[in-house]
Design a protein around this nucleic acid. Structure first.
Lengths: 233, 233
DNA sequence: AAGTGGTCTAGACCACCTT
DNA sequence: AGGTGGTCTAGACCACTTG
């Protein structure tokens, strides 16, 4: 008797992915129902479901109740990256971490910040500028706006001791984050704070954090020259 | 009689997440076994497993067989982004897509490329430089190296008609991708091809693609000024 | 060696969506 | 209204990893 080894969900995933790549199922095509695939491959429907969950997360197929499973017409490469607390990022590079508060003021939100938060009218927010250092050299320059309606506690935090970055991550849950990457030239104050020549190319990360429908904070982090961000998968 | 509504895995996830955020389980702490949580919350172990799967993917906890589930000590913000085929990216902005092949040569890999592929000795690879345009204006300048050992078929593709980007996505499965982001100053040929002033800040995406242990291709994509990449979650 | 997470199954019911 | 994916359960066994 030939004892068949049991089929795993990764086997199913690999089989379906292979069929998509070799055009057995073409872009836009509807795949068989989970149950039929399960029958064909000889496993439980749950196993097919697990495989599909993976393919769906990876962006290869799209699933809808009643609509069925379709091969995505626009294959995308989906990647994931981690943004740790800046202090840990520095420490993991084996460098000594330092932090300087540059300024802390209540101000009316400028237009660009209103756009980040999706609001129409200027309001008072806490604007915090600070510098993160690695081995006493500038690492990241942070320009942050914090909504004091959703996070009034921030007003009583001593930001000379703990960075807003760290305090927020530790005390404020969030439900959604938007991140934008871009490049900018070093100019004026930015170049000065980062101790870098005017005109150099700097890597910029902008993050806006939300809890439900309410914005918490938006931050523009400008990295010193040479900074690189990695992602996988 | 009070009929309890059935507990869903999102309920379990939210409950555990809440406990982590309010420090019932502190960073580094070991959580109860799945089975105990299931007993406590009154659901099946599978349901707890599904919840943990989500928390683990989100980077909140770390799970190991026998080791159990631990709250991560370094909370990270994990975000996901899509990299579509460049043509679709342009078209989705409502712009007209064009493509120009700049050069196509068999060359020995320089040191930087050997590092991307993790190889020790220089070998012959196909080096393709090309320009993607949106509404006839430079959009992305691509400098790509393709391993002709793993992908010999590329040698017979007419790259004046179809970009290597598109051909590879359509015909070559991959199992792993590494992405690196950085910023660089516009200089020499790069500035010229992108029709941008020397010294401007440019956004750079480097991708290396693998199938199993074998590298397929590595590409440096330099975006025209103003380019922004977004990520979510 | 044993504990804990990971997976598979079979069956049931639910929820969403298209027709 | 009905079809399809999504989830829950209970039980079993497996596989990894740590003590």
């Amino acid at each position: 008797m030939n004892v068949e080894t049991r089929i795993s969900w990764t086997d199913v995933r690999d089989e379906i992915r292979a069929r998509i790549l070799n055009r057995t199922y073409e872009p836009g095509d509807k795949l068989p129902r989970d149950e039929d695939i399960a029958l064909e491959l000889g496993c439980a429907r749950t196993t097919v479901h697990r495989a599909m969950q993976d393919l769906s997360l990876a962006g290869l197929v799209e699933r809808k109740r009643k609509g069925g499973t379709h091969v995505r017409t626009d294959p995308v490469t989906r990647a994931t990256f981690d943004i740790p607390i800046t202090r840990r990022e520095v420490e993991q590079r084996g460098a000594k971490y330092n932090y300087q508060l540059i300024s802390r003021e209540l101000k009316e939100t400028p237009l660009a910040i209103m756009a980040c938060f999706g609001i129409q009218q200027a309001v008072q927010m806490l604007n915090v500028k600070s510098l993160h250092l690695a081995d006493n050299r500038p690492y990241i320059l942070e320009d942050r706006w914090i909504d004091i309606t959703s996070t009034p506690e921030i007003l009583s935090v001593d930001l000379t001791l703990e960075s807003a970055n760290e305090w927020l991550v530790r005390h404020k849950p969030y439900s959604r984050i938007e991140v934008r990457f871009s490049a900018m030239s070093a100019e004026g104050e930015t170049a000065q704070h980062l101790s870098t020549p005017v005109g150099g190319a700097l890597f910029v990360i902008e993050r806006t954090t939300w809890i439900g429908p309410s914005p918490i904070t938006t931050v523009q982090a400008v990295a010193a020259p040479g900074y690189q961000l990695s992602a996988r998968s």
